[in-house]
């Protein structure tokens, strides 16, 4: 869902700024089906999950293609798999950064903090990105700052897939 800010409309109706922002936040939460004041991030998580799935297929292609009897084509598919794998790992990192920024921009500071820490661990100590992924799973399993089962499940699947990919693709 494309959630647009209703702030200008509220301002045009003569509301003062804080009230307009509160109403805008409430409306955006209502539009996204979240009445708790916490953003579900479903679109970004779904995108992350999709990219994780695409990346996993790239990993599979990279590892399986050299063992096939396709001649020069096996090398082509291995290279293609490697390219897909590498690109999707980076895009997945970008999605994490975007999630943190979006959470920060919508006042969901718990999610923003946690996602930033996870990203920081991935960036600065990539070997320990595995533990970041496991911590994210634990965070989601415990409810974290999300109240919706679907969102938490989606997030857990994304983090689980990312963790698995780090284990496989980065050679842990």
């Amino acid at each position: 869902m494309l959630a647009q800010s209703p702030l200008p409309t509220n301002l045009a109706q003569g509301n003062n700024a804080p009230t307009a922002w509160e109403q805008a936040d409430a409306l955006m939460r209502a539009l996204s089906g979240n009445s708790s004041g916490q953003d579900t991030m479903s679109v970004l998580e779904a995108a992350g999950l999709g990219i994780g799935a695409v990346g996993s297929s790239g990993d599979l292609l990279e590892y399986a293609a050299p063992g096939t009897n396709l001649g020069p084509a096996s090398r082509f598919f291995a290279d293609l798999g490697q390219s897909i794998s590498r690109s999707s790992l980076f895009i997945g990192t970008g999605i994490s950064a975007a999630s943190a920024l979006y959470s920060a921009g919508t006042g969901n500071y718990a999610d923003a903090t946690f996602t930033s820490i996870d990203l920081g661990v991935d960036l600065t100590l990539s070997r320990f990105g595995l533990y970041g992924g496991v911590a994210a799973l634990a965070f989601d399993a415990s409810g974290g700052s999300k109240n919706y089962i679907a969102s938490a499940t989606l997030s857990a699947m994304y983090n689980g897939l990312s963790t698995l990919r780090k284990v496989c693709a980065l050679g842990f």
Partner: peptide, 21 residues
């Protein structure tokens, strides 16, 4: 009243990440 009207669509964030990547 201009850029603020657009907000930050989550779908656009995904497109932005893909483009930058």
């Amino acid at each position: 009243t201009s850029i603020g009207v657009l907000g930050i669509p989550r779908g656009a964030v995904v497109v932005l990440v893909l483009m930058i990547g």
